[in-house]
């Protein structure tokens, strides 16, 4: 068995349907609201964190199962330590300022929050800025560390040597911890 890997117009049509489903899901999960995001970062509202961790809990084990069946391929872009770390820090600073990531900015704008348009404009500007300094980044940041090798998981599905099992268990424990310690706030 192998991934379906749709092409042509069918791929576009399914992408539009998937986008509609994703838009509904983002709105229903409160991931698009500014207040939910900021409260999650202040550890005052656990909804965003529990949603993320529960998706890891389900996703990691499901991915391993589908990978073993050959239904999915590994789709991970090459990553290096310093670009990932510095990128994460810069993204984190941006997140406390605007409380949006690209996907939530689009959905938030659709939900009538016109101010999300400024976030989208900022993001579009960033593409041009990165293009302008891509040569500099290639000569500096991307030479500081080698790409992190991706280790394909092997061995038994429920083996304690399987990192996917450990990550799932840790995610579930964290979900329970957050659920019983951090409260639930209101959205915008």
């Amino acid at each position: 068995m192998e991934p379906l890997a749709l092409t042509g117009n069918l791929r576009i049509a399914i992408a539009i349907i998937a986008g509609i489903g994703l838009g509904v899901l983002l709105e229903k999960s409160d991931l698009i609201w500014r207040k939910t995001t900021l409260d999650a970062l202040r550890l005052k509202d656990g909804r965003l964190l529990t949603t993320f961790l529960f998706s890891i809990f389900v996703g990691v084990m499901l991915f391993q199962l589908l990978l073993q069946q050959g239904l999915v391929n590994i789709q991970v872009r090459p990553a290096a330590f310093w670009p990932s770390l510095i990128g994460g820090i810069i993204c984190g600073i941006g997140l406390i300022i605007c409380a949006k990531v690209p996907i939530s900015a689009i959905a938030s704008f659709a939900a009538g929050r016109i101010h999300a348009l400024w976030v989208i404009i900022g993001m579009i500007l960033a593409y041009s800025a990165v293009n302008a300094v891509s040569g500099f980044l290639s000569d500096t940041l991307y030479t500081w560390s080698k790409p992190i090798p991706y280790h394909e998981q092997a061995g038994d599905y429920f083996s304690f040597e399987n990192p996917a099992l450990w990550l799932s268990i840790i995610s579930l424990v964290l979900v329970l911890f957050i659920q019983f310690t951090i409260g639930r706030g209101d959205n915008d």
Partner: peptide, 30 residues
């Protein structure tokens, strides 16, 4: 909006993937 959005996308571009891509890659144990 402009400042925060710029920094968020700059960080994502430096790290080399979209936010959803990072989420998906985390599930794939990257």
């Amino acid at each position: 909006g402009v400042g925060g959005g710029f920094l968020v996308m700059l960080g994502l571009q430096i790290a080399g993937d979209s936010f959803w891509g990072q989420w998906s890659a985390a599930i794939q144990l990257s």
